[in-house]
């Protein structure tokens, strides 16, 4: 029982990490219908910047709380600038191109960011200098620590903020308009380019937060960390129904739970024939099953036959 509870907590934490990253994917997809494959690398850059700034501030003997906040802000600022530039350079000129063209530039951007990070921060792993001791709490026999609790809360908080932003503000209305019909939105006086830029910057700021939380949780930063994370988060976003904010959260948490329960119990279920080495197979099978029953993900809207 304790073990089951612990596995559920593990899944929730892991799932919230996926959700944090998945929200960024889904934001961009919701507005543009474009998979921003470079999103995982933006998360990595966010983590790197946060680590560097945090390190510098801590050696400058700033109070831990201030140092953490400032490094997070710095990471967000850099990532926003990065997101803006990526959109301007690699995506905007291709808006009318065949739909796979921006996919290739996205892959190009990924490779460039990865190798830039390797040149700047080196090939080795870095410790993430979190200045607090993350205390552990007992919860019915299971153990959970502060950082993990923070991750779950922050993921929920960000999701609700985004929901509010999209559904209750002027900017959000413009975003929904662009998503619905860009031409009509433009005719109604919406500055499409500005809306898209803002969306990218928002998504990238989220990536910075995700990068910070992920590295605080695992304690290490590496220039290759974005790839796998991005892939899992993208899967989560699709599972929940890409383009849907609540879907990203649901998909992320679900994927986390599937993975941890899968890894924990797959051996018992199959009588030892399959082990935790089939964890990802299990996750992908669930994904495929969900998509066959609901071709647009759990919460996704049914896509029109043609845009």
């Amino acid at each position: 029982m304790e073990i089951l509870l612990q596995q559920i907590i593990n899944g929730l934490v892991q799932g919230s990490v996926y959700a944090l990253v998945a929200l960024g994917y889904t934001m961009v997809y919701g507005i543009l219908g474009l998979i921003n494959f470079a999103h995982g690398e933006v998360v990595m850059i966010g983590a790197m910047i946060a680590m560097t700034v945090l390190q510098a501030l801590l050696t400058a003997a700033l109070t831990p709380v201030l140092a953490v906040l400032l490094s997070l802000l710095a990471a967000m600022a850099v990532c926003m600038a990065l997101g803006y530039s990526i959109e301007r350079i690699a995506y905007r000129p291709l808006r009318n191109a065949p739909r796979l063209a921006p996919l290739i530039t996205a892959i190009g951007v990924s490779i460039v960011l990865q190798n830039l990070a390797m040149m700047i921060w080196g090939r080795e792993y870095h410790a993430f200098p979190l200045p607090f001791n993350s205390t552990s709490h007992q919860l019915g026999g299971a153990i959970v620590n502060d950082v993990q609790i923070a991750i779950v809360i922050i993921a929920l908080l960000i999701m609700s903020t985004l929901m509010w932003l999209v559904h209750r503000t002027r900017m959000g209305r413009a975003m929904r308009a662009v998503s619905e019909n860009p031409a009509a939105a433009a005719l109604m006086g919406v500055d499409i380019n500005r809306v898209i830029s803002v969306t990218f910057m928002l998504g990238s700021a989220l990536a910075a937060v995700a990068g910070f939380m992920v590295s605080a949780n695992y304690g290490i930063v590496h220039y290759y960390m974005g790839f796998m994370l991005g892939l899992k988060a993208f899967t989560a976003a699709v599972l929940g129904g890409i383009g849907n904010l609540r879907g990203a959260m649901l998909g992320g948490v679900l994927l986390g739970l599937i993975e941890s329960l899968g890894a924990g119990y797959i051996g018992d279920i199959t009588g030892g024939f399959l082990g935790s080495n089939y964890q990802d197979v299990f996750a992908f099978f669930v994904l495929i099953a969900v998509l066959i029953l609901r071709p647009s993900g759990l919460l996704g809207e049914k896509l029109a036959e043609r845009a």
């Binding site: 073990i3 612990q6 596995q7 593990n10 899944g11 934490v13 892991q14 990490v17 695992y218 290490i220 960390m225 790839f227 796998m228 993975e259 941890s260 329960l261 899968g262 890894a263 924990g264 119990y265 051996g267 082990g275 935790s276 080495n277 964890q279 990802d280």
Partner: peptide
């Protein structure tokens, strides 16, 4: 008990929890 992970993973809580048992 024999558990597995990958060379790209960073989260091992699931397999570690089942080892804990």
């Amino acid at each position: 008990v024999r558990e597995y992970t990958t060379d790209k993973a960073v989260d091992f809580t699931a397999v570690l929890t089942s080892i804990k048992g």
